[in-house]
């Protein structure tokens, strides 16, 4: 657990970057700091590994004040990923990833062996090992950055806008892999982003900051979307937060109509829909909504575990359903 205990940071110029921040980041979870630019997210993050020292207050990792620890030793135990990856251009991909194990006293051979394994973990083929960062795409560099941060298997990871510098399609892929990795690894992660969608997607806990370095609200993504503490949070999570909050509603309770009511849905001999937008009971209402909106027929088809169509919904059905849930709450 990472604890911010009444932390203040005032830069020499006199501007308050972080204003009396008290916050707990749960162990094994991803906590995302989100908010408009300049609201103190990066400053807060960098105080955890002492890249910046607080003006007052304490930061503890598992109850231990970071201020009392040797800077370099502390940082070797905390994975650090930054925007644009910050890879060492003069070192190969493999040696970039081997950096921290080497600093920790592993032999070059051991460190490289560990590094090779990590490249695989983050989805990079071994053939990239001998390349230099300048020869990689932005998305590949970002993966190497993550691999470098993971190489010494630190319990804590800090990530500052790790996916901001790559294009949306690549970012989508990196998000998926991030979630998959984090499911396996269960690191205690502090991540900074200015993108509320990213925060909601990746965060177990989201901390929204406002101008002046003030914490506006902390909670699970669902809490923020459904119970914004104030006007600022409501505005920041967006006007379409109703739509976003559907990500947390299951499609299981969504009533469907018989497939026969929609002759435009074509089935093959086994009863599987062809060329249709399909979903299962496990998907979220958000996905189904998106499907009905983007499908040319305005209809999404529910399929069972065997892949056979067992019902259809239109966006009118979904709207009715949502109105019903809202009424119950």
């Amino acid at each position: 657990m990472i604890t911010f205990d009444d932390v203040v940071k005032v830069y020499p110029g006199g501007s308050t970057a972080v204003d009396h921040l008290s916050l707990e980041l749960p162990t094994g979870r991803t906590t995302v700091f989100v908010g408009p630019s300049g609201c103190g997210k990066t400053t807060s993050l960098r105080m955890i590994n002492r890249m910046i020292s607080p003006t007052s207050g304490r930061i503890l990792i598992d109850g231990k004040d970071v201020a009392g620890q040797d800077e370099a030793v502390l940082r070797r135990g905390i994975g650090y990923v930054i925007q644009h990856a910050g890879l060492f251009p003069h070192r190969t991909v493999l040696d970039n990833v081997a950096t921290v194990p080497m600093l920790l006293g592993k032999t070059r051979r051991e460190a490289r062996a560990a590094a090779l394994e990590l490249l695989d973990r983050v989805g990079l083929a071994a053939e990239f090992a001998g390349r230099y960062p300048a020869q990689l795409s932005g998305g590949q560099q970002q993966r190497v950055g993550v691999a470098r941060a993971l190489a010494a298997d630190p319990p804590v990871m800090l990530m500052d806008e790790p996916f901001s510098a790559v294009d949306p399609v690549v970012r989508e892929g990196l998000h998926r892999e991030f979630l998959r990795l984090q499911k396996d690894l269960g690191k205690t992660i502090a991540m900074v982003t200015h993108d509320i969608d990213e925060a909601i997607k990746l965060g177990d806990v989201v901390a929204i900051f406002r101008q002046g370095g003030v914490l506006a609200q902390v909670g699970t993504p669902q809490e923020l979307l459904t119970q914004p503490a104030d006007e600022f949070v409501a505005e920041f999570v967006g006007r379409d937060r109703g739509l976003r909050s559907l990500s947390f509603e299951s499609a299981a309770g969504l009533p469907v109509r018989p497939v026969a009511e929609a002759p435009e849905v074509l089935l093959d001999d086994a009863g599987r829909p062809q060329d249709a937008a399909t979903f299962t009971q496990e998907d979220s209402l958000r996905l189904v909504t998106d499907l009905t909106i983007t499908s040319p027929t305005g209809i999404a088809v529910r399929v069972g575990p065997d892949g056979k169509a067992d019902g259809i919904v239109s966006h009118h059905d979904i709207a009715d359903h949502i109105a019903r849930i809202k009424g119950q709450k």
């Binding site: 030793v73 910050g86 941060a149």
Partner: peptide, 15 residues
């Protein structure tokens, strides 16, 4: 030098 790279060097725990 690209200050981000130097920043990363400090951040990963180089003295």
């Amino acid at each position: 030098l690209d200050h981000r790279v130097v920043d990363a060097a400090k951040g990963v725990g180089m003295r």
